[in-house]
């Protein structure tokens, strides 16, 4: 085995310019957890299929467990921890609809929902299902998540 290789990267994390010393094999999830103590992006399936590791990279959601941290040099990264002071309409709608049970998948669903509503302000149920099919909830909260997305979208259109 080779020695551990480290390098320094600079990027913008939730609106702040930061730098981090990383190991070459680190993914974005490793970077956020080990470099910044942010645990909202979590590795679960490890294959980009469940969405628990969702991170918004340069404005687009990606699977943090499949993206090398080294490639984030110069990038802009947003995580679920980007608005801690006040909840946004998506988070509020998730709470009102009861759209989570154990909560492990919730940050991924919230981040994806924000993106969905930005792309499709008035999503049909079919569009919601298609867009969020890559996020899995083992507690089976899907009916409530669909309700939450519709609620949040309606509230954001009205705002």
């Amino acid at each position: 085995m080779k020695d551990v290789m480290t390098q320094t990267i600079d990027f913008t994390l939730n609106g702040k310019a930061v730098s981090a010393e990383i190991q070459g094999h680190w993914t974005l999830v490793d970077l956020l957890q080990q470099g910044f103590d942010l645990y909202g992006a979590r590795q679960s399936c490890g294959q980009g299929l469940c969405g628990c590791c969702t991170v918004v990279l340069n404005g687009k959601p990606v699977s943090g467990c499949l993206f090398l941290a080294a490639l984030a040099d110069g990038a802009t990264i947003e995580t679920i921890e980007n608005n801690e002071e006040t909840l946004d309409p998506v988070q509020e709608a998730f709470i009102e609809a009861g759209a989570f049970q154990c909560g492990f998948c919730t940050p991924g669903f919230v981040l994806m929902t924000r993106q969905l509503i930005a792309e499709i302000p008035e999503p049909s149920e079919e569009e919601i299902r298609l867009y969020l099919t890559g996020n899995l909830c083992r507690c089976g909260t899907y009916p409530q998540i669909i309700e939450a997305v519709q609620k949040a979208a309606a509230r954001m259109r009205a705002a």
């Binding site: 980009g48 299929l49 969405g51 969702t54 687009k60 959601p61 990606v62 699977s63 499949l66 993206f67 994806m112 993106q115 867009y131 099919t133 890559g134 996020n135």
Partner: peptide, 9 residues
């Protein structure tokens, strides 16, 4: 095809 996050990358 796959999912939004994979298609983004």
């Amino acid at each position: 095809l796959s999912n939004v996050r994979v298609r983004n990358v």
